[in-house]
């Protein structure tokens, strides 16, 4: 087959919504876009462990502590599934780490915000995981098989994350005055960054059309953001919390909530590294990786020695 016919075959599979698998021919752009998107997502999972990880040692009850720990651990698992999916595209996890540590690769900017109170564990679960789920559910049917399968697993596990977050918020909002204040303060701080999680407005998002065709993306940034606003306003009512955006208003004609302007200047600055925690998060990840080098080397060395001994018949199989 010529490149042209390979391309035609690929396009045909995409149009018929047939899943692309690792050994199938795929255009370079498709491979690159996938590696970028999957690894960004993977990086977000493991950097995302840090803001919540902050509160594992301070969780207010043993039950909350166990749940939070299990949740942050799930994020490690999600990172792992996604790195594995990226690896099927011919890139190693170590290379992807290098890209993260050198600042070449991005991760979700939301994790560059600090977790200041226990209520942030609630707000992150409710809003950040809520937004993530909205982004992720359509990806369970994305065109690349390993990615889609990883996302199915992620989404299955993710559903408890948002629920536990909402439960924390509900407990706080039904609690004492100070607890309610904690919940509202946290909602105020996480609301706008959560909206920014869906990415820049469609008009400024160059990859959207191609990505939608490839089913790497299934709904546009603005569509997803609107969906998120609509459901969250209703959930905030259940929590009896005030919307941080005073311009939120039901629009009968559109059948959606209208909302106030997002500070995209802040968004781009945080993306560029000027968020409150960018440096700290990256340093923490780098330190864990560098300080783990001797451990990984030790395991490799031991495995090799063991193999050599076994070959010599010195140890039983």
């Amino acid at each position: 087959m010529t490149v042209h016919s390979f391309q035609a075959h690929f396009d045909d599979l995409i149009d018929r919504e047939v899943t692309i698998e690792p050994k199938d021919w795929m255009p370079d752009d498709y491979r690159k876009t996938l590696i970028r998107q999957i690894s960004q997502h993977a990086h977000s999972e493991i950097v995302g462990m840090l803001p919540e990880g902050n509160w594992i040692t301070r969780a207010p009850t043993l039950r909350r502590k166990a749940v939070l720990l299990a949740k942050v651990q799930d994020e490690a698992g999600h990172g792992l599934y996604l790195y594995s999916a990226a690896e099927t595209l011919g890139v190693s996890r170590d290379e992807l780490y290098d890209q993260l540590h050198s600042g070449k690769a991005k991760y979700s900017s939301i994790f560059n915000y600090p977790t200041l109170t226990w209520a942030d564990m609630g707000a992150i679960g409710w809003l950040v995981d809520g937004a993530a789920i909205m982004n992720q559910v359509p990806l369970c049917r994305t065109s690349y098989g390993p990615y889609a399968r990883a996302m199915v697993r992620v989404c299955k596990e993710e559903s408890f994350h948002q629920r536990q977050g909402f439960e924390i918020m509900l407990t706080l909002s039904k609690g004492t005055e100070i607890q309610k204040k904690m919940a509202q303060d946290s909602f105020n701080r996480w609301w706008w960054p959560s909206l920014m999680m869906f990415g820049p407005p469609d008009a400024e998002s160059p990859h959207t059309a191609q990505s939608v065709r490839w089913r790497i993306k299934r709904l546009t940034n603005d569509e997803l953001r609107q969906k998120f606003v609509d459901v969250t306003v209703e959930q905030a009512k259940v929590l009896d919390l005030e919307m941080p955006d005073k311009e939120i208003k039901w629009n009968e004609e559109r059948g959606h909530y209208d909302s106030g302007p997002i500070n995209w200047d802040e968004f781009w600055n945080v993306v560029k590294g000027n968020g409150p925690c960018n440096k700290q998060r990256l340093e923490t990840r780098k330190r864990a990786w560098e300080e783990g080098q001797w451990v990984r080397d030790a395991a490799t060395a031991h495995a090799e020695k063991w193999k050599a001994r076994k070959a010599k018949g010195a140890v039983a199989a």
Partner: peptide
């Protein structure tokens, strides 16, 4: 599986 760029220090994939 496709032969990947092997990082000598990376633990093998299973």
């Amino acid at each position: 599986m496709e032969e990947q760029k092997i990082n000598k220090n990376e633990w093998p994939l299973w």
